[in-house]
Design a binder for these strands. Structure first.
Lengths: 108, 108
DNA sequence: CTTTCATTTCAAGAATCATTGAAATATAAG
DNA sequence: CTTATATTTCAATGATTCTTGAAATGAAAG
C-alpha cells in the first residue's frame, strides 16, 4: 500500500459516522447492507450516509453492488488487512510489540 | 481502547507530516529523537513539528522526555498495538483475513 | 542576572472536511 | 409513459484542522 492510500484510509477511519458504518457492515456479513439501512443504522440522512459510503469506497475498504433499485455495501477485508499491514510493517518496521496485538484474540 | 481515542488516533495518522514523524521515531529506536531533529527530518518548521508532535502525543502513540535543554520523543508501541487491536477486534470482529495480515512478516 | 538555545504557545488566515436540503439520476412498477 | 422508490450529486454553509511567524517559556552557560 502506498502512503497516499494509507493516509486516505486513516482519514476515512477518523470520522465517527464512517467508523459506525464500517462496524455495521462488518456485522452485516458477506451479504452486505443496503444504503438505506446503513443510513438508518448509522443515524444519518441518506445524503450524509451516501457521502460517507463513497468516501469509504474510495479507500477500497468497502465495495458496492447494485441490486435492482437498491445498492448493497460490504466490507472488503483485504483492504483493511492491507492497512493493518502498512501500519505494522511500513510504519512500525514489524515491531514485535505491535505485532503481538494481532496474533491471537487474547492479547495485549 | 474507546472509540474517542481510536478516532483521534486515526486522525493523527491521517496527516502526511505526522506519519513521516512517526516513521522517523520508529527508525530512531528506543532512544528517541530530539524535537529539533524531528523537524529537520520531517522537513517542517519547529513550530509545525511541535504542533504535530503534540497531536501524536495526545493519542499516546508517542512519548516525550526532557533532556536538559532538549526534548526527546519516542514511539509508544503499546499504544500503536492497541489501535491495531481496536481495528482488528472492535471494528472487524477479529476477522481472519484481516488478522492474517499481521501474523507473519510474509503475509497478504 | 543576562544571554543563548531549544521548544512551545498563540492568533490569524488558509485549507480541508462535514452537513444540509434540494435537485438529479437510475431502476422498477402500474 | 407516468409515477414511485432508492440513491447520489450538487452548492452553500458551517466546522475542523493546518500553517505561519511572532512572542513566550524553560533550561543551561557565561
Amino acid at each position: 500500500m502506498d502512503d497516499t492510500l494509507a493516509l486516505a484510509s486513516f482519514l476515512a477511519l477518523s470520522n465517527a459516522t464512517r467508523l459506525k458504518i464500517l462496524k455495521c457492515l462488518v456485522s452485516a456479513g458477506t451479504d452486505g447492507m443496503l444504503a438505506g439501512d446503513v443510513a438508518l443504522a448509522a443515524d444519518a440522512t441518506p445524503s450524509r450516509a451516501s457521502f460517507h459510503l463513497a468516501n469509504l469506497q474510495e479507500t477500497g475498504m468497502i465495495t458496492s453492488t447494485r441490486k435492482s433499485r437498491h445498492i448493497s455495501y460490504a466490507v472488503n477485508y483485504d483492504a483493511v488487512g492491507e492497512l493493518m499491514k502498512y501500519l505494522l510493517q511500513d510504519c512500525c518496521q514489524n515491531n514485535e510489540t505491535v505485532r503481538m496485538c494481532c496474533t491471537s484474540s487474547e492479547c495485549c
